Each structure stands twice: as structure tokens, then as C-alpha cells.
Amino acid sequence: MRRLLLLDDDPLILHALQRTLRQCKFDVELRIEVFTDPAEALVRAAEIDIDLAISDYHMPAMNGIQFLNRFRQIQPDAVRMVLSASTEFNTAVRAINEAEVFRFIPKPWQWEELQQTIVLALARRDQNVALTLEQTSLSAQELALRKLEADEPGITKVNWGADGSVQLD
């Protein structure tokens, strides 16, 4: 099961998005959570893992870039997308640069394109999680090496000879 968070200040847009997503064919079950209030969406994001967050850009309390930037701080591995009727180049650039969004989806959306974008976003989420796990395990390995070196100074340092032999000092 994958979890999507949808945020738009217009409930009609949220209902339309949900209807569109029900038409799409995905290999996994999608659990969709909808919010009209960015603050409530951030509270929920702190409670559960979200795979993908899609936010409207123009909202009264906080714009989509601000929301997704805060969301990124809570869930850095989740994929973020902006949904907007705005076609301003600067808006898209800010979304990419500030909130590190994966895609900028124009309103009105095409359901086939939205489906394909969500499939790509979920694949990106898997890559993000794998990378984080890899970095975490490397950090754990580095910590283990440092502890070993602290307990037995010089044990992790090997002097190799030109012929591949170990040089003892």
C-alpha cells in the first residue's frame, strides 16, 4: 500500500483528483488522504509515512511551495509535486529550487499523464528510501570503524607494500 497526501484549498478539486485517481490503474493499492488546510496536512505528515504529496500552489494560508518545503523537513524521502493553474515560469523554478519538487502538474490535468507521473513518483520514492538506507548503513559502518580505531589505535590503518604485501612498522 502506498500513501498519497493531496492538498488543495478547493474541496471540489480534491474530489476531482480522487475521482481521477480511482480511474487510474496502479500495481499497488493507494491510500489517499485529502486536506484543505496546510497546517492539518503537516500535522498528519508528522504522524504517518507519506509516499507522495501533491499540493496546489495558490492557497490562502500558505502557498504550495511553502507547504512542500515544510513537508520536506518532516519527510525528506517523500516525493513532492505541485498542482497549479499557474503557468508562470518563476513559480515552477521556485517550486523546484525551494521545495525540490519532482513534477509541476498543470491544471486541468490529463488522467493518463497524472497516472504515469504518479508511477514515476512512487519509483522515485523507492530510490530515495534505498539511498537513505545505504547512507545510513555507511554511516553505521563508519561509526563502527571509528570505535574500533579508538579501542585499538592503528588497527584500521594498513600500510601496503608495492608488491601488495602488508608492511609492519
Rank of each mutant, 00 (worst) to 15 (best):
Q116V: 13
M1Q: 04
Q127D: 15
A99W: 08
L133R: 15
R3H: 11
F89K: 06
L145T: 10
R70H: 13
V93N: 01
A41P: 04
L6G: 09
L5N: 06
N90T: 07
P108I: 07
A45Y: 11
I96Y: 08
L145W: 12
E29F: 01
V166Y: 05
I155H: 11
A78V: 05
A61W: 10
I155A: 12
I48M: 07
I13E: 12
V34H: 01
D27M: 02
E98T: 01
E47H: 09
L122D: 09
E112M: 07
F35N: 04
I105Y: 02
Q18P: 00
P153T: 06
E113F: 09
A144W: 14
A53N: 02
E29L: 14
A95Y: 05
F102I: 00
D49K: 05
D37S: 09
E112V: 02
F71T: 09
N159R: 12
N90H: 09
D126Y: 00
E88W: 01
L143F: 03
F89C: 00
V129H: 02
A46E: 13
I32D: 07
V93G: 00
L168E: 08
V129F: 03
L138I: 11
L131W: 14
D8V: 11
Q115V: 00
A78W: 08
A130V: 03
N69D: 09
K25G: 04
T20V: 08
R124L: 11
R94G: 07
G164A: 05
K147I: 15
V43K: 07
L12A: 15
T20S: 15
V101Q: 01
L52S: 04
A85T: 02
L145I: 10
P76S: 05
A140N: 13
Q115I: 02
E100T: 01
L30K: 06
T117E: 11
L145F: 14
S86E: 14
R80H: 01
W160I: 15
W109T: 04
S165I: 06
D51A: 13
T36Q: 14
S84M: 08
E113S: 12
C24S: 14
L114W: 05
T156W: 06
C24Y: 03
A85P: 04
P108A: 10
I118Q: 02
E113N: 13
I54M: 10
Q135Y: 04
L143H: 15
P153Y: 03
A144S: 14
F26M: 03
P153E: 05
A99V: 04
I65R: 08
N63I: 02
A85D: 04
L148K: 13
E134I: 08
A41E: 06
E142D: 14
T156Y: 05
D8Q: 08
M59H: 05
A85H: 00
E112G: 05
E149S: 08
F71V: 05
